[in-house]
Design a protein around this nucleic acid. Structure first.
Length: 329
DNA sequence: TTTTCTTTTCCTGGTT
DNA sequence: TAACCAGGAAAAGAAA
């Protein structure tokens, strides 16, 4: 491998293509310089432990062979190398439909060990409001992540089960539900891109950036039953969708409102509008409040919602609903 | 391919 | 009468 290759990264998500290109080169350069704006990320490939670049590579990271296929999630973040960190970032960009220009990748030219040691302030300093998402996800992966136990065993690693930080949950799948007064639901769903200038209102919301409860549940299940199956079809669940609307009232005025915030009691103000919004999210133009409410009633049995007798359009979060309490922020 | 889970759809009947 | 509630039944759709 010889020479230095400069790759200019434009505002968009070209870093991913850059990486793909990089790993498809017959002749690898020694150093890659990724330029983003005025910043530069230097990667010394000859010094970087990457299995796909070093077939005979033998390092403590050995169990992550094949990582290039996206195996970073099988490894505790503490043991990620720079490429794992990049893979994780890419996953986060994809899952949250972030504009890649929101992520200052040069700030993450670091190993997993360094990543795990970063505080929320560090993340915010490094990446602005996106830092909330990054920090939350790292915390989630640190404490509840799914990674191969063989890895941990082979490294004789003891996973800490006590949390010193407040549990902050992954924001994997999250939309920014925005409602405008013209009832343009299309517009609401065009606003999926989290960028620095869009995040503060959401990031400061009670649920700290819009965490999908499914992740709370999944994390909880992992904690209790590591081998249990995860299931979260079609992304966010209905009740999470409702919760998220409630938690971003500034962006969704007049759709649903809290009746009793501390008790988790809420009321639909524009039931059909919410149904249309839900239908839009599910790509189902025929969604009605009638159907939505049927789905809501199924939550009673699972204790995600509780009945509120005698009050129309009023529901209450049950004990299996998480992420709506102010104290959970 | 099968299983599992979460809706979605349709329905009947009751209540406000 | 319209809108909503309750819940049974079956099917759809997606992930594991």
């Amino acid at each position: 491998m010889t020479g230095v290759t400069d790759i200019s990264v434009a505002d968009r998500i070209t870093w991913r293509f850059t990486k793909t290109w990089l790993f498809n080169q017959d002749e690898m350069p020694d150093i890659i310089m990724i330029l983003q704006g005025s910043s530069t990320m230097n990667i010394n490939l000859s010094a970087n432990h990457h299995p796909s670049l070093h077939p005979t590579w033998t390092s403590p990271y050995a169990p992550c062979d094949g990582f290039y296929g996206g195996q970073w999630h099988e490894i505790h973040p503490q043991f990620w190398n720079k490429f794992h960190v990049w893979e994780w970032l890419q996953q986060l960009v994809d899952a949250n439909q972030l504009d890649a220009s929101c992520i200052p990748f040069q700030e993450f030219d670091i190993t997993g060990e360094r990543l795990c040691s970063m505080t929320l302030q560090d993340f915010i300093h490094a990446s602005g409001s996106v830092g909330h998402i990054l920090y939350s996800n790292v915390q989630s992966l640190k404490w509840h992540g799914q990674y191969g136990s063989h890895m941990l065993q082979s490294l004789n690693v003891v996973i800490k089960t006590e949390q010193t930080d407040a549990p902050v949950i992954s924001p994997w799948k999250e939309d920014s539900y925005q409602y405008n007064n013209n009832n343009s639901y299309d517009d609401m769903y065009e606003s999926k891109v989290f960028c620095r200038n869009q995040l503060p209102a959401v990031a400061s919301s009670p649920y700290n950036g819009g965490f999908a409860e499914s992740d709370v549940r999944k994390s909880h299940e992992h904690h209790q039953k590591p081998s249990s199956k995860k299931h979260n079809p079609r992304g966010t669940h209905l009740w999470e969708f409702i919760r998220d609307i409630l938690l971003t009232p500034d962006k969704n005025p007049g759709l649903i409102k809290w009746e009793d915030r501390s008790e988790g009691v809420f009321r639909f103000l524009k039931s059909e509008a919410v149904a249309q919004l839900w239908g839009k999210k599910k790509n189902n133009n025929s969604m009605t409040y009638e159907k939505l409410s049927r789905a809501m009633r199924y939550y009673y049995k699972r204790e995600i919602l509780e009945r509120v007798d005698g009050r129309r359009l009023v529901y209450k979060f049950g004990k299996n609903a998480h992420g709506w309490k102010e104290s959970e922020s």
